[in-house]
Amino acid sequence: MAQTARTMTPGSTASASTGLLRSARFRAEREADWQALEKLVAKAEQKGLHRMEFAAARDLAAGYRRATTSLAIAREISLDRALLEYLEALTARAYLCVYAPQERLGGLVQRFFTTSAPQAMRRSALFIAIGYLCMGLGALTGYLLYFENEAWYFVFMPAELAGGRTPEATTGFLRSVIYDTNPDQTGLGAFATFLFSNNTRIAIFVFGLGVFLCAPAIILTFYNGLSLGAIMALHVDRGLGWDMGGWLSVHGVTELSAICIACGGGVKLGAAILFPGALSRRAALQRAGRDAVKLALVAAVMLLVAALLEGFLRQMVQDMTMRYAIGWGVGALWLAWVLLAGRGRA
């Protein structure tokens, strides 16, 4: 190659230096077009693409495509760094404007609740069932172990969570917790305290830790079941089983379901890592993530509802049957939503 370069006539380089360079001509011919695009990009970034007039939006898209062509050509024919850097930046800015998400926030929320969330729940039925199974087995184990030896209670139940409800407490005290007519907190305060109580943290952990091969999600859910079983066993032991069931039902049906659903999402992520199938692990994780995120969002909404029920309704309703009716009624509504919503649409 160097050989051919040396055979070139000196005249050709001399004429090029007078300003008739191919790359300089290329730039001079297109400069106005690029500057017009620059203005459109600035406008689109300021106002948003959906608020631009039709003609401007059309010009932006067309100008962007011309700029990509210019960039590809300039990379081949020009060594002018200023030009290359300008075109790189301009094309990238225009690219970011043209390929922007075009979604309205309102439609998004509506679509989530009417179609995509219930569909994701139905698709992940197996994983959610695993979540319920973990919780159920944990509760059963905790229940049986309590009757074997009361000391297990202290193993399963952290002291701050029990709030004095231990095997040493009197039956009268246990009853007073269940039917507490003058609480020391306002509704809003109780709502907030609840939301940041143990169970929300467990739900977040259960979901997030599922990535690590499912095990943490399953263990945590099982553990949560253990403490549930132990506290139930304590109350059954004192003949308060039905009353405790009512107290727990008001928010528990929704709240414990939320944990099971979060566990289902976590297990789904972990399963994608364990059994990626024909995909790479990262691709499998990304695919599983599409449904798992919806499960996490559903769990979050359910926890909010549970907090509302706990904060406001539980102390207002003191009747056991009413408590059962509210708790399981809300549970039935959730079930109906999951089973019926979003059918018949793509």
């Binding site: 790359s23 690029w34 620059e38 300008y86 930046a89 990238a92 970011l96």
Partner: peptide
């Protein structure tokens, strides 16, 4: 998980062409 990453926004500044 989401398949995204974060970039610096490039700033297009067209300097004069030294040859012209």
């Amino acid at each position: 998980l989401a398949g995204t990453h974060v970039i610096h926004l490039p700033v297009p500044v067209l300097l004069r062409d030294l040859v012209r």
